[in-house]
Amino acid sequence: MSLNKDFTARLAIGISASLIFLCLAWYNDVALFLVIFFFAAFAMWEYYELALRNGGKSGKAAGYAAAAAFMLLAYRPPNGGIERLHAALALCAAALIALKFIENSLLFRVPAVSILAATLFGGFYIGGSMSCVLGLNFLDKNHLSAAVGDRHLLFLLPFVGAWASDTGAYLSGRIVGKEKLSRISPNKTVEGVVGAAFAGFVAIYIFGHVLNLPTPLIMFLGLAIPVVGLGGDLFESSIKRRFQAKDSGAFFRNHGGVLDRFDSIFFVAPLTYFAVYFFTHRI
């Protein structure tokens, strides 16, 4: 596909998704919750389709339930109740680490542990991450300093950072890319990473000032989001490679599935949520 056509298609996906999310966020919280829930459910369906390839096993229903639980915890938390989401995320992360430890050291290759880990991971990776997008929109105003501007624009921050980095990486890689970055994702180049870092920083710097965020938070997110987004991208590529798939699905036709388009968001959203929470928290 030519650079112009591919770039235009990527941009169209980004603009239309952002426009829909923003209109819904401003119009009605429930509508935003439902559309993010829909994307998360579709991404989970793609994940379990991948995980069940080649005879893999996982408990889909439990995974969907875990994801729904995360997102409901993020939705309109009661006074100070956002900590329940934090506790759930921390417990799930701890459980995954424990399962991995058990599988590796104590009960090597026990199927039940693998199935449980694959199930829990689906809920955590997608539901947990998307709950952080919702969390940004539903952050209690008491948690935000007076400096932060429109609360309803906050949830766009991870999308702007991740998609600007993706755009920078794509254009730099296509125009001057030469040095291969990793065997996990053969199309990525070192020049693309340089472009992603600069694009992400500039976009976050400008958008952060539009939101009137504190400067230390803007600098932190501007430096961290491109790197973490690249990590999310490589991670999803490694999952696809593990299950020998080119794309996670065909939701966006030639541009892959929801997992492909939101891969960096799944890593960037929790980082942004917790950074905004802790940097702007009134102590």
């Binding site: 980004g14 766009l156 702007v160 755009t167 340089v194 600069f198 694009a199 958008f207």
Partner: peptide, 17 residues
């Protein structure tokens, strides 16, 4: 060149946002 393209892409994306 990649850095320059990145800065341009960042500015463009901010304008789009």
């Amino acid at each position: 060149a990649a850095a320059a393209i990145g800065v341009a892409a960042g500015l463009f994306f901010s304008a789009v946002a």
